[in-house]
């Protein structure tokens, strides 16, 4: 009798605990990264695919190391954009790392490139700079670091696909004016410093016309050697 009572009590108790846990879960947001990064989605899209705003970049599929470096730079103010600086100010490193991993692991399809607004000549100049650079002006080809498919390289070099001309040109400008900086040696600051306004327009326009390659994944670490030192991609 006593044993039965005790057992019933135990069952009731277990049920109560179970109910409590179920109610708790029902009244809680999903315990997922997707729910935690909802603050990012109005500007970067639900899966980091980007939005209609041409100044906000696609995040999906970029190397996690690159995304993490950007989150750290926004948090410390080394990369200046007040809405991002503000959002990240009090978030700890492991959480930023998890955010970077989350968007690196998303693979929504790359968008169809939008028709370019610049002339054929300008596009040709952009292609030349992006694929061959201009040794006489110390400008390396984009592909020498961002890869022949422009898909980037693990862990720190971003792909340049799926970005709009306005964003690319704004970032090159930000390096030239010092509102975007990275770990020393800040290779992109050096490169951007050698570009003229016309170079920026041409390169940004050409990059934005690139269709998705067969394999848009960043190349594994060490696939190719960089032409010069880069703080974001230690050898």
């Amino acid at each position: 009798m006593f044993a039965r009572t005790a057992a019933s009590v135990a069952v009731i108790f277990t049920l109560a605990v179970f109910d409590g846990a179920a109610a708790q879960t029902a009244n809680q947001p999903p315990d997922t990264m997707a729910a935690r990064v909802e603050a990012c989605t109005p500007c970067h899209g639900n899966k980091g695919e980007g939005t209609s705003d041409v100044y906000f970049p696609r995040l999906a599929g970029k190397p996690a190391g690159y995304l993490y470096n950007q989150l750290l730079a926004f948090r410390s103010g080394r990369r200046k954009y007040p809405p991002m600086n503000y959002l990240l100010e009090f978030l700890p490193d492991p959480y930023l790392e998890a955010m970077a991993e989350y968007f690196a692991g998303e693979h929504p399809p790359l968008p169809q490139p939008a028709p370019s607004e610049v002339s054929k000549e300008v596009l040709a100049q952009g292609e030349l700079l992006a694929t061959s650079g201009d040794a006489s002006r110390n400008i390396p080809a984009c592909v020498s670091c961002h890869g022949p498919a422009l898909a980037g390289m693990q862990p720190g070099i971003p792909g340049l696909l799926g970005l709009r001309a306005a964003y690319i040109s704004a970032q090159l400008g930000a390096w030239r004016y010092g509102t975007r900086t990275a770990k020393s040696p800040d290779c992109m600051q050096v490169v951007a410093g050698h570009l003229t306004e016309a170079d920026v327009t041409a390169v940004a326009a050409w990059l934005a016309t690139r269709p998705a390659p067969a394999n848009p994944a960043p190349a594994p670490k060490g696939t190719y050697a960089l032409p010069f030192g880069c703080g974001s991609q230690p050898n």
């Binding site: 935690r36 990064v37 909802e38 603050a39 109005p42 978030l91 959480y95």
Partner: peptide, 8 residues
Amino acid sequence: PMPYGMPP
């Protein structure tokens, strides 16, 4: 350690 955020 992993707070939920409000979108802007």
